[in-house]
Every structure is written in C-alpha cells, then in structure tokens.
Nucleic acid binder design. Structure first.
Length: 430
RNA sequence: CGGGAAGUAGCGCAGCUGGCUAGCGCGCAACGUUCGGGACGUUGAGGUCGUGGGUUCAAAUCCCACCUUCCCGACCA
C-alpha cells in the first residue's frame, strides 16, 4: 500500500484533552478519530490493527472449539424483560421506540439473544456441548467516557457463550477459554494478571478477570511480589496488605480489564426456558458460561504496553504492516523505483507493506515511521544506494542492518517472519 | 447525575475592560530552492467567532438560556 493512497493523518502535536498515552498515540498515529464523546471511527491503520487482533482471537477461539456467528445489535426490549435485565442494565442501555412503536435497544451484551437462539435450536443433549462466539459492536451509554477507546459508548467485543449438559462440561470449556485467553493476550504483547472476580450484573458463581497493569486502569489489583499471586483490589483492605497465599507484602496497582469469563450456570436458561432433553429423558436447563474480550480496548492496552518516546512499537503479530519502505530520494530517483519493486515482490510473498511515497523530507518520514511503529523499516537513501546498500531498521531495538540491494529479497522475508538475526549470516527466502 | 474548566480555520492558540477589513503558529495549494531525523522563500485558499435570544449606534468581546467537549467524583458486564 502506498501512503498517498490511504489515509494516515499523523499529528505532530499532542491532542488536547487527552491524558492516556495510548489515547494520544492512537490519535497522533492516525488510527482512530473521535466523532463525539465515546464514539470513534477506525481509520485505515486502526482497522488493520483491529483486524489482526481479531484474527488472533478467531484462531484461538476456533482452536478452543468455539464457532463463530453474528448476532444482531438491534434487540427488542421484550427479550430483556424475560431476565429482568431491562431493569438491571437500564442505566447503560440505549433504548428507543422504532417507527412501528416497538421498544428496542442496542445490545449492551448478548446473553439474552444467544439464549433465545439456543432455546430454538438445541433440544437434545446430543447437540451439547456447544460454544458460539462473535466479534461485534456493543453499545453502552456510559455516563462518563474516558481514555478514548478504553471506555467508549460504542465498542467492539468478542463474546463467547457455552452451553453444556452438566457442570463438569462447563468447567472443561471454562478452562479451555481460560487458556485461550492467555494465548490471545500473550500473542498481542500484553502481560495479564488473572484474578477471581465478582460476577456483577452477569450473574453466576465463578468468574475470572484478565487485567493488564496500566496507569489508565480503572480497576485495582493486589499483587504479591513473592509468589506472584494476584487478587482483586478489595483484598488489600481485607488482608491488611499481606498475601493470602504466602503472607508477603502485597502491592496495589491499577489495571485495565481486558477480559472477563463467567460460569453462569442456569441463570439465563432458566429465565428464558432454554431446556434440553437429557440422556435420562429428563428436561433440564442448559448450563451456560460466557466469555468476553474488549477488543477495541485491547488495542489501547497493546499501545499502552508497547511504546517509547518516539511513538508506538507494535508487536509483530498485531502490527498494521509488516514493513514500511522509506524511499528518501526524489520522484525519479533509484530509491522510488526500488521501493515499488520491493513492495511488489514482498506483497507477492503475502507480506503487508507500506511505502511512504510522499514527497516529504527524510526527517518527517523518519518521525512518522517511528510514530506509527511498523516493526521493520527499509530505508532507501541516496547515501547508501551510491554504494549499493539499503538499510533495515528494527523499530523496537533501533538496530540497523546494511544489506546489498540485490540481497534484500534473500534476507528481508526471513527477518520479517522471524525477527532480526543475532548474527549477520542468517538469511531467509520467500 | 453533582462539582470545576473550556468552545474563534483541519490542529494548537491569541484577541475579550464593546469600536477599523478577526489574527498567529502548524497543516493545506502553487512555484522555486532543498532532501539521512519534523528544511526555506514567495504567493494563496480556508471562518455561521458553539447555538438561540437580549442590551447597544455598534457584540468574538457584556447579559440570559441552551448545546457540546474535557477534568474530578458517583457509576461501570
């Protein structure tokens, strides 16, 4: 992709009214744009990151045995009255009457919808266990939005729902999801702490939160430096600041909630009559679990965990592009032609390539490249080309490798796949 | 929803004790010179001064109401 054919509106200055580093960088690197408080557009670069995170989530969900579907945002209030959550979630629910006079809402979550679906289609224990998920927009009328896309009124969530015939089955799938979540966050370059948590308005008995330590966090977590124990912030007060597991001192830190999984039990299936006929001929309510990841919030968390003074430093798996090519010379010079040639070849090898084909000074191209944080940068400057050399620079470490221009296609694919070589002789072929 | 602050060009701001044609920096367009860490010159485009009402010969400027945004708090699967 050529820079001049997409929209990457980088900003030199820090936008006013922003305090979170991730919020500032997402705006400055041109990934998102605020339409109104708590409502954001994803610009091309932001959408690319979003898609890559979604891909990771889909891979892990599919591997855990979940199947993807897509539920509606637009939901009748009638459905919510069955569980009483039209009252419980009243404050955050965006509701209205449509032109036919039906009372509707924009879904803040999807337990009711999925349970209604299961009720319709699952009659027998032979159809269980079943786990379904979607990646979709949620609407919550937050009284106070904060930190850009971290706490927005419209945001993207991955929500999964499991249906089992017994508690043992629920526990099995719960553990699978637990593991899948660890994989997702690890692949996204975010360290998480997992704590047993309150189920809140979701209901159910067992639940775990996946928290990333970050200064913009809205949750408190008590951490043990000794045994690695992590607990809810309330533990701090209850336990007098010492670890319930090993007794050592706890430290209290703020964290951002990225995922939350729940063993719901039969709360929804009872209320909505989602029953199945078991092997023993008895009609039983399905045993449910639900599993959420704040996908848009995860983008902010990735940035919050991966930046330096000059901008974002994307982990390889979620970066919007694999490599950015910077021709520094004028329109007709060799660098331009080489950039096009390299880009074409790399794209044939299924790499995502961004070419900064703008007519800007080298300084500005370097600054913007740092800001948007593509993991690798191919610099085609007159200085190097004179000697037949191009440079590969790693964003995270700042290391530079000078390579003969005719060897680029021999070396670069391997680097993009496996990272910078420790020694110079490592090579890869596309 | 309580408390505080702010709305003037795409972004950041000045002007505000009423008074000339509403300005500056960045960005944007054209031309020229530049070209390895946010280059420079010349010319130019871009504005319902948040909205509505009021006071006045005259309102970006004073008064009232409303809207929007941000911060603190309460709330938050």
């Amino acid at each position: 992709m050529r820079w001049t054919q997409t929209l990457i509106p980088t900003l030199k200055e820090v936008p006013v009214g922003t305090e979170a580093v991730s919020h500032q960088l997402l705006l400055r690197a041109g990934l998102v744009n605020m339409l109104t408080s708590g409502v954001y557009s994803y610009l091309p670069l932001g959408l690319k990151v979003l898609r890559r995170i979604e891909t990771i989530i889909r891979e892990e969900m599919n591997a855990a045995g979940a199947r993807e579907l897509f539920l509606p945002c637009l939901q009748p209030i009638e459905l919510w009255k069955q569980t009483g959550r039209d009252q419980v979630l009243q404050e955050i629910m965006i509701r209205f009457k449509d032109n036919r006079g039906r009372e509707m809402c924009l879904g803040p979550t999807h337990e009711e919808v999925i349970t209604a679906l299961a009720k319709n289609y699952v009659q027998s224990y032979r159809q269980l266990p079943l786990t379904l998920y979607q990646i979709q927009t949620k609407f919550r009328d937050e009284l106070r939005t904060r930190f850009g896309i971290v706490r927005a009124c419209e945001f993207i969530m991955k929500d999964a729902y499991s249906f089992d015939r017994d508690v043992e089955g629920l526990e099995r799938v719960y553990q699978k999801m637990y593991n899948a979540y660890q994989n997702v966050f690890k692949r996204c370059g975010v360290d998480v702490h997992i704590i047993a948590a309150d189920s809140g308005a979701m209901g159910g008995d067992v639940s775990h939160e996946f928290l990333a330590l970050a200064p913009i966090g809205e949750d408190e977590v008590a951490l043990c430096g000794g045994c690695g124990f992590a607990g809810a912030g309330a533990l701090w007060a209850e336990g007098g600041g010492s670890c319930p597991s090993c007794g050592k001192a706890l430290t209290k830190q703020v964290a951002i909630e990225l995922g939350h999984i729940f063993q719901l039990g039969t709360k929804y299936s009872q209320a909505q009559g989602a029953m199945f006929l078991d092997e023993d001929g008895k009609l039983k309510p399905m045993i449910m679990g639900c599993y959420g990841i704040g996908v848009s919030r995860l983008i902010a968390a990735v940035v919050e965990k991966n930046y330096d003074d000059n901008g974002i430093v994307w982990p390889r798996e979620v970066a919007p592009y694999d490599v950015e090519i910077l021709p520094l010379t004028g329109e007709d010079a060799e660098g331009r032609a080489l950039a096009r040639e390299y880009a074409e070849t790399l794209e044939k090898c299924r790499f995502e390539v961004l070419v900064d084909d703008r007519e800007e000074s080298p300084g500005r191209k370097f600054h913007d490249a740092d800001l948007i944080g593509i993991p690798y940068r191919l610099i085609l400057g007159a200085r190097g080309l004179k000697e037949g050399l191009v440079e590969i620079k790693e964003r995270r470490s700042g290391r530079v490798l000078k390579i003969r221009k005719e060897d680029i296609m021999l070396r670069l694919p391997g680097i993009l796949r496996d990272g910078f070589p420790e020694k110079d002789e490592d090579a890869g072929r596309c």
